[in-house]
C-alpha cells in the first residue's frame, strides 16, 4: 500500500446539471400522469434523474401543494428531488423534514441546506454546499466499431465515435459528441441539460439531433447542411446547425 489509504475523503467543488421541474398545477395525479408520459418518451434520460423542484409559479397562483405526497410520487417514478425553490415557509419546512435542501434562490448555484430542527448538531447542515466553479466530467468515451441500428450508447462525459452511426442507432452523451464518420442515427448531446454541449460530425444524415433536449428531426434540417461536416450547438434556446468549413 502506498499510504494513500490515510485519506478517507476529499471535499471537491464540482458542478453538475439537473433539470428544474417547474410546476404549474397542484394536482398530483396530473403531475404524475404528465411525467409518466415524458418518461416513456425518453426512459434513459429520466431514469433515476435528479430534479430541482420549482414552486414559484404555484405560489404565485396561490395553489397549495402537499410536498410530502409530491415527493413520494416523484420518487415512485424514479425521479429524485434534490432541492426545492420558490416554496412558502410551510413548504420549506415540509421539504426540510424530508431532508430536501432548500435553494434560497438568492444566488444562482448556491444551495443552502437548512434544517429547522437544530437540536442535534449536524455538521452537514451548517456548511453550505460550495458554490460551484469547475466542471467535473468523466473522461471521453471512445467507440471505434460501427454503431448499428438498434444499438444505444450512453457516455457520462464526451463521446467520440470513429465509425459510422447507422439509422436506428442512438448515441447520447452528457457532454459533447464527435462522430468522425457518417451520422445516420439519433445523436443527443448534453442529455443532462448541458446547454454548452456541442455535436460534431463529418457527414450529417441524422434522423434526429439534440442538444440539452432541444432537437431537430431530419425533416427540419436544411439541404445545405445535409451530408456535410457540421457542428450543432444551442444559441438562445435555438438549435444551430452550421457547416464546419465556415
Amino acid at each position: 500500500m502506498d499510504g494513500s489509504q490515510s485519506s478517507v475523503l476529499e471535499l471537491k467543488s464540482s458542478t453538475f446539471f439537473a433539470p428544474v421541474l417547474v410546476l404549474y398545477s397542484n394536482e398530483i395525479y396530473l403531475i404524475a400522469e404528465t411525467l409518466q408520459e415524458k418518461i416513456s418518451g425518453a426512459p434513459d434520460f429520466f431514469n433515476d434523474s435528479a430534479v430541482l423542484l420549482d414552486l414559484t409559479e404555484l405560489n404565485l397562483k396561490g395553489l397549495p401543494v402537499d410536498i410530502e405526497a409530491l415527493v413520494s410520487t416523484l420518487r415512485g417514478l424514479h425521479i429524485f428531488p434534490i432541492g426545492i425553490r420558490g416554496g412558502s415557509e410551510a413548504q420549506e419546512k415540509q421539504a426540510s423534514a424530508l431532508s430536501i435542501p432548500i435553494d434560497s434562490g438568492r444566488s444562482s448555484g448556491s444551495v443552502l441546506f437548512e434544517r429547522q430542527n437544530k437540536s442535534k448538531p449536524d455538521i452537514q447542515s451548517q456548511a453550505p454546499v460550495e458554490v460551484i466553479k469547475e466542471v467535473f466530467r468523466a473522461t471521453a468515451m471512445l467507440v471505434t466499431q460501427p454503431v448499428r441500428s438498434g444499438q444505444r450508447i450512453y457516455a457520462n462525459g464526451d463521446l467520440v465515435i470513429l465509425a459510422q452511426v447507422s439509422a436506428g442507432a442512438e448515441i447520447m452523451a452528457e457532454g459533447n459528441i464527435h462522430v468522425y464518420n457518417t451520422l445516420r442515427g439519433r445523436a443527443l448531446a448534453g442529455v443532462q441539460g448541458d446547454m454548452a454541449a456541442r455535436l460534431f460530425c463529418l457527414d450529417l444524415q441524422a434522423e434526429l439531433i439534440s442538444v440539452a433536449g432541444v432537437y431537430k428531426t431530419s425533416e427540419d434540417l436544411k439541404d445545405t447542411v445535409i451530408k456535410k461536416p457540421v457542428q450543432v450547438f444551442l444559441q438562445e434556446q435555438a438549435l444551430i446547425v452550421v457547416e464546419l468549413d465556415n
Binding site: 460501427p146 454503431v147 448499428r148 441500428s149 438498434g150 444499438q151 439509422a167 436506428g168
Partner: peptide
C-alpha cells in the same frame, strides 16, 4: 439492409 444492420449490432454486442 436496415434489418441486417440491426443484426450486425446484435452480433457485436
Amino acid at each position: 439492409v436496415r434489418d441486417s444492420d440491426r443484426m450486425l449490432g446484435i452480433l457485436a454486442s
